[in-house]
Design a binder for these strands. Structure first.
Length: 483
DNA sequence: TTTTATT
């Protein structure tokens, strides 16, 4: 009996020790293990790490020594822009051993700052390693609340992997945070329990707890901001694949940036890319390099013949709200691209009023694509009635209150903004009697509640410049109604 | 009231 037992124990100890040693050797010594020295093999459960905050002048060979400290590297790749080859300041790293990854993460993540960086290095599992959506955006926090306060609020719903308060350059809280749980279910539980559950002192509304924006959503947000900064507003872009269009534009812009690529550029993308340049310029940012005169003998891609065939008005106007191309097409394109970035051709008769151009764009769009327009607009009479009749109210549930309108919006602009959602029977911006200035709020009435709801859905919170529209059902004021 | 990047 004793013999048998000993034998079992010996076998177990031996086997266990052997495998443990192998593992320990693999991770705890710098680069000695013979196990994966010649043929790189990684553990079945290896973790791919994302490395962030890397100075752009460091490439793989510069980075290797730093990470080899923690074990044999299976793969290390610095991320580069697909078109320009530009170093993106981050990398992916996979160790042969899972343990090495964990060690490196513990030792390095936010523990040191590489030369020239303002933030500490990031070493954590890549997004591709994670299971599902588990990161939350938390809004409407008190600006005094710190990471620990937020953790305390969220810890009972699961294990928190990350908790960050968003701060401005001055270090002041922006009143919102990101909280990452280890699983989607935990995140969901926190949303159910906390969203809207309380109002923090000093916050303008109740606590917001939702899944953080995806990349796509962030792109949309940025697009809205840009549109706002340009004073251009066009709801059509919201309704129709502007997202996809924008993604294309980004790609195309990158293409343009790499002079000499000479690939096909759709006129729309060229047009929009030029605008992005312009926006970058007016924002005082460098923007992607686009130098029409560079390269001497090499004509820039943007002068390719494709530019002269005029795009469907949609692409241009739908996306940017720019004036429709002139009939011959050639002149405006040339004017625009020879001065590099000017979105408004000087000779345009309506150049003085970008807003008006945007509206012209909407109509042009609608006229060109009645079918598409019909998808969101139940009733689409030939030219939409821009001049509101006498002020009328729709049935209950059809009347909207809109706040945070741009100062320059009048009744017509308000109507134009909501036409895509249905039949607008009236629109009214309130005006200060003394100054004749808009009070930045107004009312819009539809002929059916569905349109009103669709408008709320799309337009509430829509960002124009620094402001966000508030769009809600008008309060029924039966009590006040004059007899 | 949505970040410093994720092939």
């Amino acid at each position: 009996m004793a013999t048998l037992t000993n034998g079992q124990v010996d076998a177990a100890v031996h086997g266990g020790a052997a495998s443990t040693n192998g593992l320990v050797n693999g991770i705890s010594h710098t680069h000695s293990p013979a196990s994966c020295a010649t043929i790189p093999m990684k553990d079945h459960d290896a973790i791919k790490l994302f490395i962030g905050q890397i100075p752009r002048n460091l490439d793989e060979k510069d980075l290797r020594p730093l990470f080899e400290e923690f074990g044999k590297i299976y793969e290390l790749t610095v991320l580069k822009d697909r078109f320009t080859g530009m170093h993106k300041g981050c990398a992916f790293l996979t160790y042969c051993a899972r343990e090495s990854a964990l060690k490196a993460q513990t030792a390095l993540h936010e523990q040191k700052t590489l030369p020239g960086m303002n933030r500490p290095i990031q070493v954590k599992p890549a997004d591709s390693e994670s299971r599902g959506d588990r990161k939350l955006f938390v809004g409407m926090l008190n600006k005094q609340q710190c990471e620990d306060d937020v953790r305390r609020l969220f810890e009972s719903f699961g294990s928190i992997e990350e908790c960050t308060i968003l701060r401005g350059p001055d270090g002041n809280s922006k009143g919102c945070a990101f909280v990452k749980y280890s699983t989607h279910a935990e995140a969901q539980a926190a949303i159910s329990a906390l969203h809207g559950s309380q109002t923090m002192p000093g916050a303008s509304s109740s606590l917001v707890v939702k899944f953080a924006d995806t990349d796509k959503e962030r792109t949309i947000r940025r697009m809205q901001q840009m549109a706002g900064q340009m004073g251009i507003f066009n709801p059509m872009a919201l309704q129709f694949g502007a997202y996809g269009a924008y993604a294309q534009v980004q790609q195309q812009a990158a293409l343009m940036a790499s002079v000499g690529q000479g690939g096909y550029l759709s006129p729309m993308a060229a047009f929009a890319a030029a605008q992005m340049q312009h926006m970058a310029t007016i924002n005082g940012l460098p923007g992607a390099p686009m130098t029409p005169t560079s390269g001497g003998s090499t004509p820039p891609g943007i002068t390719a013949p494709t530019v002269t065939s005029i795009p469907s008005p949609i692409s241009v106007n739908g996306f940017t709200g720019l004036p429709p191309p002139q009939a011959n097409g050639q002149a405006p394109a040339e004017a625009m691209f020879t001065n590099g970035i000017h979105p408004y051709p000087a000779q345009s008769p309506t150049a003085a009023d970008p807003l008006q151009q945007a509206y012209a764009g909407v109509q042009q769009y609608a006229a060109a694509f009645p079918a598409a327009y019909g998808q969101i607009s139940q009733a689409f009479p030939q030219p939409p009635p821009i001049i509101p009749q006498q002020q009328r109210e729709g049935p209950e549930g059809c009347n909207l209150f809109i706040y945070h309108l741009p100062q320059e919006f009048g009744d017509g602009e308000l109507m134009q903004m909501f036409l895509p959602f249905g039949n607008v029977i009236s629109s009214k911006v309130f005006v200060d009697r003394a100054t004749n200035q808009s009070k930045c709020f107004g009312f819009v009435s539809f002929d059916n509640p569905g349109s009103a709801q669709a408008a709320i859905q799309s337009m509430n919170g829509f960002q124009i410049g620094m402001k966000r529209l508030k769009v809600q059902l008008k309060r029924p004021k039966d009590a006040n109604r004059p007899y």
